[in-house]
Design a protein around this nucleic acid. Structure first.
Lengths: 136, 136
DNA sequence: GTAGGTGCAAATTATTTGCATATGT
DNA sequence: ACATATGCAAATAATTTGCACCTAC
């Protein structure tokens, strides 16, 4: 996922490629800590000093609809990550830090399990709460 | 989980057993569709016509702290269920309906996952999105 | 030029808080 | 009697919406 894929996807759908959209997208790509709307607003504001929260939200919704980002809900606040392969979220109940856990084996097992249940999930959201290294 | 266990737990902690607390607890036990705070308020209001949302929220937090209920976040709203054995939530992205899936296989999946990452989770929240029978 | 996007301000929704009054023990 | 719980109303936080203006195409 990079600017070029955004350009391609947007062009195909007749959506305008605006500097705000590029900047929000960049902010999500470059953040490794699952930023919330406000975090993204703060990052993007450094360049587009007059971007509004409303625009940030609209763009985030759009990117989600286009399957380019994924929301993660923690403590009543939506956070975002670039769409990627199957993984699990390990969340710290103290500070809210999210760590992505990847494993091919677990992915296989999830697919096997859901298919045996005759379910093809549209998506899944698997979270595991444990104290992070800073908080334990 | 029934009124008697509530009485026992509350007595042990020196907490008052009020009609509101019993009623909120009953409402969660008797609902099979993961009610939100407002649903519970509506149910309890039929008997305690002047109960307030604030009291409902306070009681829900208390029951959660006492490990008697579990919150499930869907579309920015907290919903609740009585604490029970390991299961996952199958959620409909259209109507928000939640189905509890109990399965030895899924439990195995989770045991494999946590052992692979060598984590003993405080808790987990596994949701799988699929269209429910009404919406598909 | 025009459809669609942005920014502002106001509205909405879910939840929390402060505090005076009421109630369980 | 006394500590604790409740109910009201006001506050907060995250997000959404309406609408006039702006900009990518």
């Amino acid at each position: 996922m990079d600017r070029d894929s955004l350009r391609a996807i947007f062009k195909k759908r007749g959506l305008k490629i605006t500097p705000q959209r590029l900047a929000v997208f960049d902010a999500v790509i470059k953040s490794d800590n699952h930023p919330c709307a406000e975090d993204i607003f703060n990052i993007v504001s450094k360049i587009h000093s007059n971007i509004s929260m409303s625009t940030v939200y609209q763009i985030l919704h759009l990117l989600e609809e286009l399957n380019m980002i994924t929301p993660i809900e923690v403590d009543g606040t939506q956070r975002f990550e670039i769409k990627s392969n199957f993984h699990i979220h390990a969340i710290c109940p103290i500070c809210g830090d999210i760590e992505d856990l990847y494993s091919k084996k677990i992915k296989k097992f999830w697919e096997l399990t859901t298919s045996e249940f005759d379910i093809k999930p549209i998506k899944q959201d698997i979270r595991l709460f444990r104290y992070c290294n800073n908080c334990k």
